[in-house]
């Protein structure tokens, strides 16, 4: 289960930290610069694309995170948002 790695990427590994900009209740973050992930419920592809290439003011993490880390991040976000209903 790589969602543990994904949570670590979300809260600690990625720089700047995902938590600064995004609210995600499972991670205890309340950042308000980017979309609230609990509300947005992004697809796996959306997360991977956004994190890899950046979206708008969100930077690209292609060079600072590995493909494995980005996929784990996507799996983690999906696991804590899609089952919320």
């Amino acid at each position: 289960d790589n969602t543990e790695l994904g949570k670590e990427v979300f809260t600690q590994v990625a720089q700047p930290s995902c938590t600064i900009c995004h609210a995600l209740s499972d991670a205890g973050s309340a950042g308000a610069i980017g979309p609230d992930l609990d509300e947005l419920k992004p697809s796996r592809d959306q997360v991977i694309n956004a994190v890899t290439q950046g979206v708008g003011v969100m930077p690209a993490f292609e060079t600072s995170l590995s493909a494995e880390q980005i996929e784990a991040l996507a799996d983690y976000i999906l696991s804590v948002t899609t089952n919320a209903n």
């Binding site: 700047p16 930290s17 600064i20 900009c21 950042g31 610069i33 003011v57 930077p59």
Partner: peptide
């Protein structure tokens, strides 16, 4: 702009 971000970036 929150701490931890380069202001120019956002």
């Amino acid at each position: 702009i929150p701490d931890g971000l380069d202001p120019k970036s956002i």
